[in-house]
Design a protein around this nucleic acid. Structure first.
Lengths: 344, 344
DNA sequence: TTGAAAGCGCTACCAG
DNA sequence: CTGGTAGCGCTTTCAA
């Protein structure tokens, strides 16, 4: 009755074959091969033996024999940020559907680290490498990253980027400029005339695009971009929170609405405002961008621009895997007006 | 000048060796081996060639040759939940320090899926499998999961569980009962006498432990657990949000404080309360559990029980990897009183 | 210090 | 339909 289950080391296909009384090759076919060319009776015996022994095929071995793995590599800037974790959720979902597993690395918003990570990941021979995260202008890492990814692709790998326009790979481009522009128009229509924009460093592409889009929207709506107060802040919740001090002052001096370049910061700002004695929504309208899950669940519910994060994650995987080399995929966004920007 | 970089397929060690004019074995030693027994001059040439060709060692091949991979498998219930993403962040950090990469799977709070995932993961021969997520009583999956993990370990794998006491593997146990108990005592000391508890299904171990711990604390503080209102809810933010309706009624009928079994739900509840016209903190004190990042950044800041999530992630990896088979590691928790439960 | 060659577990091709 | 076996890319003895 002892099939060797107590032996050290994993059960191998060899063990299974012996236990089932068939050849190595047959066992392989029964378990993983084309399924079609092995007598049902034998196949059954092999499967039974595998089960009994708790056999799990050695993936690295399969990978090397087949020349391709069943993993997807995902690089994000930060797992704790809902923006990225929602994207990651989408990728993981889609990967699971495709029988793939995802390895996740965190670049911590450092282009240098991001480069290192991609290099390391390449060695794992994933089916695809997905990189999510705002490009940082002038980091000097652009070319190396491109070269790294190009080498990977030359070797047969697939690549997709999320929100990193202008690298020569299939990219899911989020319409930051257009979304912010339309948000501005809607806000203007609701009656707001005096604005503040809370934004991050100008080298962060996303922040820059959203800010300029918003200003353009103001002009397009018939207003002016002059006199819009600019409040720089960290690209994090505490950044938003910290910016609230300044925002509270501005509110008291007549500013009516604040556009914060992402929801995480906006939520931080709302909390900070409340702490500073300014009621968000009532005394200062606040709008964000991304429409993360939490946006609809804060109080007042946050006006935002909906970015279909989970769908983007799924789509990124599909794009990478699809044979046809789609260039840039434009992801449409949509303004979502909520209670934090009541009509005035 | 053409080293074959334009050839299809990845650059192999063989290519590097040839380019450097040394043998395969030497190249291997120079790049990955014990480093010590290759002439510096040769080592340098190999490294240069590798660099020039953009060589990245084929990990699956190394894995099979060495008999061990450099990946860690992490199973969580949900990536979007800060509880898990903070843990994941800790794991990824620690893994990076150890030169390991983490593959992440999401069990979606389904014990069945969790089992399947562990089975699949086993095939990837990770160095360790880490499972985070509250055990669900009576799911009938306990024994199979144990067997799967045992088989993995028999084959040389390492295992660590987070908050899943009572499976026979090294476990990081969060003191749910004790933390909730001490929270109750502190709240009692602050003057609260009439309570409600928002909790999830009793089969969710974590929820159960926190609820009973809180009740015990009330008794230990000299109060009574009788008459504590029980509000069942989903183990999610919207669950907490939905529970707020009931909570608002209770507040109006004299309940002074609500203990919500986790922060995500508690934050949802605070938002819901505000929407229902009850000011959290002022009209109804609210306390949560976990002390996720957001807890300190909502308004009013949420009283909670601090669970060192990131540290737990790091620790889980260390525990799994450590030779000495530590049994259960007790993770201390700490009550953090904030503005959502002002003294009364 | 180096090279040759035997595996590692599995797939896939080639005969039977 | 089945078995034998040559690789896959790398590590690691074993000799030289």
């Amino acid at each position: 009755m002892d099939d060797g289950a107590a032996r050290r080391g994993p059960v191998t296909l060899h063990d299974v074959a012996r236990a089932a009384g068939v050849s190595y090759a047959t066992a392989s076919r029964a378990l993983n091969g084309s399924e079609r060319n092995v007598r049902p009776e034998n196949a059954e015996r092999v499967r039974a033996a595998a089960d009994r022994l708790g056999y799990a095929p050695n993936r690295p071995a399969q990978a090397i024999a087949r020349g391709s793995t069943s993993t997807i590599a995902l690089v994000v800037s930060d797992v704790d940020d809902p923006y990225f974790s929602e994207i990651a959720g989408g990728v993981i979902d889609a990967a699971e559907d495709a029988g793939l597993i995802v390895t996740m690395a965190v670049a911590d918003r450092s282009p240098g680290l991001e480069l290192q990570i991609v290099r390391a990941l390449r060695g794992h021979r994933p089916r695809a490498i997905l990189v999510a995260g705002s490009r940082i202008d002038g980091s000097g890492t652009r070319d190396s990253l491109t070269e790294e990814l190009a080498a990977y692709r030359r070797a047969g790998g697939r690549v997709a980027l999320i929100s990193q326009a202008d690298l020569p790979f299939p990219t899911l481009a989020i319409d930051n400029f257009g979304g912010a522009r339309r948000l501005a128009i809607e806000l203007f229509r609701r009656g707001y005339r005096r604005y503040a924009i809370v934004h991050a460093d100008e080298t962060i592409r996303t922040s820059h695009e959203r800010r300029t889009g918003f200003l353009q929207g103001l002009r397009d709506a018939g207003g002016t971009a002059d006199g819009v107060a600019s409040v720089p802040a960290d690209f994090t919740r505490s950044g938003g929170h910290a910016a609230a001090t300044r925002l509270a002052e501005l509110a008291r001096s007549g500013v009516e609405a604040a556009f914060v370049v992402n929801d995480v910061m906006a939520i931080g700002a709302m909390t900070g405002l409340r702490a500073a004695g300014v009621e968000p929504g009532a005394e200062l309208a606040v709008a964000g961008f991304d429409d993360i899950d939490a946006a609809a669940h804060v109080h007042p519910a946050l006006t935002s621009v909906r970015v279909p994060l989970r769908a983007i994650g799924r789509r990124a995987l599909e794009t990478a895997l699809s044979r046809t080399d789609s260039g840039t995929v434009d992801i449409p966004v949509e303004v979502v007006l909520r209670a934090s920007t009541p009509p005035r």
